[in-house]
Design a protein around this nucleic acid. Structure first.
Lengths: 245, 245
DNA sequence: GCCGATTTGTCCGTATGTATC
DNA sequence: CGATACATACGGACAAATCGG
């Protein structure tokens, strides 16, 4: 049940590209030939194609056509540019994911926490510490801070399944925007313990710090994800020129 | 001399947001009030705003308005989601950047190189090894492979300044798309030497591997960038729902 | 080099839907 | 409920780039 026409066209084209229906490296059928197939206006088709561009699936070339530059990636990876929960990543990569909740506390942000997370001082927060494992191997240590007023009723039980599923399906919250910063940091004793690392092997890990906003423009989540370096792999598709359509 | 109307509107709004002309966390003037100011159609204005959304500058909320969620970042960082040369990053962060060319060779891709880079076997390539420094401190060790047929006339002298400047201003090539993968790897002796690292300190670094395409859809560059971990910082802005407008 | 056909890029005006207040 | 604001969709016009004759 796609909400909009351009989205269903986008999904259909994406599927056809992934399945190899369009030859790799070649041009897709022209706009004018696709428009009657989808029974849509030119703008609507172009919108669908614009999304394929930002996905890195195709490249438009003025005067020539739309080139299919899709390359399948078989390795497990996390996507950049889109927000994905661990559970979604696991299922996309067809792996068995599991989550263990180490800590679940409610507290009030003091000045130190406020400065670090971006929440205001005095805000009521949940702090959740979790380990995500794939095929039984611990890969990610997560430190989550959620704004209680925006995410009421969170429990350790929910945290052990999927917080995002709860936010979207139960609270009907719309997650929109996430500002993320990636860095590399030294491992701590906590990392060593829960990610089963050995300092003599890797002595640092990949850290992703994110501020996430809901559709009301409220920052409701601050998270630090600490990734095992040997299983960390982030993908990105960067555009130099246009960016939108 | 902005090429298009929507781009100049985008730049103007972006500037006004950065300069604090619109209050932080508040709504921007509505579309209908901005349209007469820019003397444009609604579509054109919405296109400009859509780019601000992907930049993480604003968030549109149906029925309410467009919220300014811009937060200035003062730390030096590299942008994800857009392609930027080292020289551009340095100047954006107002730092003194310098580049040292360690190796500059021309060779033919054998099967091993072809498999690793994605170029076809037998392709004529440039291989360039460079160190980028900021304020005299070596930060990035770059291994570049360029397709000779697409990037003719490259010299070590050009490589010591800016290859992208040469590509765009002299060869008039349009760089469009770059697929990137970020990982964390152990440091090698080469890294240790040129990035002045100490294995007893950090024993790994951030690696960004990228395949870059020009406007003809030709992959003309394969690059591996190895970043000093203590100065590595990548920013990203992720969108969960739409992606385009 | 020119010209015309094709193809993508930009821009406009309008109508309708949907969410917020 | 009506007014406001953003979201989707359509159709048309012209510009710019590419390609073949």
């Amino acid at each position: 049940m796609p909400k909009s026409k351009y989205e269903s066209i986008y999904k259909d084209l994406k599927l056809k590209i992934e399945s190899g229906e369009f030859p790799q490296g070649e041009l897709l059928p022209s706009e004018n030939s696709l428009i009657p197939q989808y029974e849509c206006s030119r703008n609507t088709l172009r919108r669908a194609i614009a999304r394929l561009v930002t996905d890195g699936y195709v490249q438009t070339i003025q005067g020539k056509g739309v080139r299919n530059i899709f390359i399948p990636v078989d390795q497990a990876s996390f996507a950049i540019g889109s927000i994905e929960s661990f559970k979604e990543s696991a299922s996309r990569n067809r792996r068995a994911g599991s989550t263990q909740v180490l800590r679940f506390v409610e507290f009030t942000a003091d000045s130190r926490v406020a400065a670090r997370t971006g929440f205001s001082e005095g805000a009521e927060l949940y702090y959740i510490q979790r380990v995500h494992s794939l095929d039984g191997k611990p890969l990610i240590l997560n430190h989550n801070y959620f704004l209680k007023s925006a995410v009421p009723g969170l429990t350790a039980e929910i945290a052990s399944r999927s917080i995002y599923e709860y936010l979207e399906n139960t609270l009907h919250m719309t997650i929109v925007n996430s500002k993320r910063v990636m860095t590399v940091e030294k491992i701590t004793q906590i990392d060593e313990k829960y990610l089963e690392l050995d300092v003599n092997d890797y002595n640092c890990l990949a850290v992703i710090t994110s501020h996430t906003y809901n559709s009301d423009g409220v920052m409701f989540e601050f998270t630090q994800s600490r990734h095992r370096p040997d299983y960390f792999r982030f993908q990105d598709n960067a555009l130099r020129r246009p960016a939108i359509p």
